[in-house]
Amino acid sequence: MASKLTGTVALVTGASSGIGAATARELAEHGASVALVARRKDRLEELAAEIEKAGGTALVVEADIADRNQAEGAVEQVVERFGRLDTLVNNAGLMLLGPVVGADAEEWDRMIAVNLQGLLYTTRAALPHLLRAAEQGPRQVADIVNISSQAGRMASKGYGVYNLTKFGVNGFTESLRQELAQRHVRVGVLEPGAVETELVGHNTPEVRNELVDPVIGRIEVLTAEDIADGVAYMVTRPRRTAIGELWIMPTDQG
């Protein structure tokens, strides 16, 4: 029996670790050919070898999606290799926390470039191909899943600009969902709570001690595989069913 995504192609950004890598593995297990997009080529090659050893198909695409030309080029490479694109998972993200007063504006620029501009560039480049896939077999539907955060639902002290980017992802997702609904490109947002990934490691020990550890130090956090399972759930629904928003939290996170 064919898997639910057999004959389709998925592009996952930020695929070199964490949620992105886990999502790529999960979609490959469901039968999709998977394009792995990130900056760390060595990690992508390791993941591609793992997927292919398990019987899947993977393409390594080294790119910094915060650069519009590279984001567009990544999509072009995928379509050139596979001839189509059915699923886009905008996962690449950066979380740099701390007070607004006295903040490093370059950190703001980096977050906005990856979390917002990178998502926009990749989505814009992918849309013509997703719309075409939605008109064709095997499923006659295409998907965009934007990985946001609990921080896109509620603001917290010290998370200000990260909150800004994730609230923006949520708003953009819903607007685009409405725009594309009648054309069978499903657009949804997935908002994880605390997840064990490299994301918090971008911060100084002082910031982690004040803003992160008090939360994750007292709960059983999610794994990247938990979020990948959520992505797979969203994109394997029947054509008539769209998941516009999926909020996944650790059971004991308040």
Rank of each mutant, 00 (worst) to 15 (best):
203 N>C: 09
196 E>P: 11
158 G>D: 01
154 M>L: 13
190 L>R: 05
163 N>L: 06
174 E>V: 15
229 D>L: 12
200 V>E: 12
200 V>R: 08
147 I>P: 07
118 G>C: 00
198 E>G: 02
236 T>K: 12
168 G>M: 12
150 Q>I: 14
119 L>C: 08
177 R>Y: 14
131 L>Q: 07
131 L>G: 12
204 T>Q: 03
137 G>E: 09
138 P>V: 15
176 L>I: 06
180 L>N: 03
139 R>T: 10
190 L>K: 09
225 E>N: 09
222 L>R: 02
213 D>M: 07
235 V>Y: 12
146 N>K: 01
234 M>F: 07
188 G>F: 09
171 G>F: 08
118 G>K: 12
171 G>K: 01
136 Q>A: 02
153 R>W: 11
210 E>S: 15
154 M>Q: 13
138 P>R: 15
177 R>T: 02
186 R>P: 07
189 V>Y: 00
134 A>N: 03
171 G>T: 09
233 Y>K: 10
204 T>C: 02
132 R>M: 07
222 L>G: 03
218 R>F: 11
222 L>P: 00
125 A>N: 01
208 R>V: 01
156 S>L: 12
137 G>L: 13
211 L>Q: 09
196 E>K: 13
200 V>Y: 15
212 V>G: 14
136 Q>K: 07
225 E>Y: 04
209 N>R: 15
215 V>R: 09
210 E>T: 14
140 Q>F: 15
174 E>A: 08
205 P>K: 03
162 Y>H: 14
153 R>K: 10
146 N>W: 00
223 T>L: 03
221 V>F: 09
193 G>M: 14
201 G>P: 09
229 D>Q: 14
128 P>H: 00
152 G>W: 04
154 M>R: 07
202 H>G: 06
186 R>Q: 04
144 I>N: 07
167 F>T: 01
226 D>S: 04
202 H>Y: 14
230 G>T: 04
128 P>Y: 04
140 Q>D: 14
156 S>C: 13
225 E>A: 15
146 N>R: 03
134 A>P: 01
194 A>E: 14
162 Y>P: 10
202 H>I: 04
214 P>Y: 06
130 L>F: 02
135 E>N: 05
174 E>G: 10
157 K>W: 13
185 V>N: 01
161 V>W: 07
226 D>V: 15
128 P>M: 08
164 L>F: 08
191 E>I: 13
222 L>D: 06
158 G>H: 00
127 L>P: 05
189 V>D: 03
167 F>R: 06
160 G>D: 05
142 A>T: 10
148 S>G: 06
184 H>M: 15
163 N>W: 01
161 V>I: 04
199 L>K: 08
180 L>C: 11
168 G>I: 10
145 V>F: 02
185 V>K: 05
163 N>R: 12
134 A>F: 00
206 E>M: 11
163 N>G: 06
196 E>V: 09
211 L>Y: 02
145 V>W: 02
202 H>R: 08
236 T>C: 14
149 S>M: 01
128 P>F: 05
160 G>C: 03
227 I>W: 03
164 L>I: 12
194 A>Q: 10
177 R>V: 08
232 A>K: 02
195 V>L: 11
